[in-house]
Simulated assay, not measured.
Amino acid sequence: MNKDRTLRPRRSCLAVPGSSARFLEKAQSVPADQVFLDLEDSVAPLAKPAARDSVAEALNQGDWTDKIRVIRVNDLSTEWTYRDVITVVEQAGENLDCIMLPKVQSAAEIQWLDFLLTQIEKANGLEVGRIGIEAQIEDAKGLTHVDAIAAASPRTETIIFGPADFMASINMRSLVVGEQPPGYESDAYHHILMSILMAARANGLQAIDGPYGRVRDSDGYRRTAERSAALGFDGKWVLHPDQLDIANAVYAPSQSDYDRAELILDAYAFYTSHDGGAVGAVMLDDEMIDEASRKMALVVAAQGRAAGLSRTLAFTPPVR
């Protein structure tokens, strides 16, 4: 289990084509928690070598403020992956937070990336182990092995759902990335999302939902984001700036939920103290709270603080 890495919030994860200088520059100013510079699907084969240098230059010279900086390399079935990693990490390792590995099918692939990163870090005087790994699950084989993939390396920070390739790999009857297939009345993605979420949480990792293809359909994006947020996912990919505000809002708690969580924490701390009577279960308004309530409130409170929310309610201990 990954207990030592500090996992920053990733409510919104903006995808940026690594071969586009305009998009690389524009991405630096958008309010995304994470920006990943893509060397895979958005870059044509002939443009991949030049894109590596462009991405490294953007990492070194760009102003990314406090964004999480990630590159998505090509998958290990291609001839490009090792050179993607070596080129970018050797040139810009000090300004890189994570490497995203797509189409992961086994724990061995994550271990390969871990070993390669360690060699590059040692050879170039970089802090060993600082660069994290993000694993993207994009087919049935990867989902079948997701538990082992999530546990494969202490570098791993997130498990990501890649809907487009996944839909194609299982012959799902939909041509809209991330959309429900016509004719299926339930949620076709529930098992996939829950499997990824369980593997992530069992190993102390974040779970990130993938893109929604209709970039101008704000209602569709919000609907799919709310689905994974309700399950407990930490964030979602953003393909267009119009989706950013939706992701940042959906994956942060509401003001009322945040206030309630802070009240529960304060009330529980008081009632379990000597002054509060040292009791383990009490009523807060019309709700019983106990240790389980405290754990649930901790999650929501942490999310609200990370989103920059401020309390609007305060707990007042009863007069005894």
Rank of each mutant, 00 (worst) to 15 (best):
S77Q: 12
L46C: 10
M172N: 07
S254T: 06
S106G: 08
M194F: 03
A27Q: 03
G213N: 10
D286N: 13
A135K: 01
G142R: 05
A123C: 07
V30W: 12
G178S: 04
Q119K: 15
Y221I: 04
V128R: 06
V238S: 11
D33Q: 09
N124I: 03
G220I: 01
M1S: 12
S19D: 14
V250S: 04
V215P: 03
Y268T: 04
A47Q: 15
G62K: 03
I196F: 00
V177L: 07
Q255E: 07
Q136T: 06
R305D: 08
A200M: 07
D165K: 06
I149P: 01
L101E: 03
V215M: 14
I120Y: 11
R10W: 05
T118C: 13
R11K: 12
W237A: 13
V73H: 05
Y258D: 02
G93D: 12
A107Y: 04
N124L: 08
I208S: 07
E90C: 12
R52I: 08
F23G: 12
S106N: 06
I159T: 03
W237P: 08
A269I: 07
S153T: 01
N203E: 11
S20Y: 13
Q206K: 14
F233N: 02
L309S: 00
R83L: 10
L46I: 14
A148T: 01
S273K: 07
R173Q: 14
A168H: 14
Y268K: 09
A108E: 13
D219G: 06
M283I: 04
R260Y: 13
D266T: 01
M100S: 10
V89D: 10
Y271Q: 10
M167I: 11
L193R: 15
G183I: 08
V73F: 01
L309H: 04
E179I: 02
C98H: 15
F166Y: 09
R311H: 01
A151N: 07
L175A: 15
A44R: 15
R83P: 00
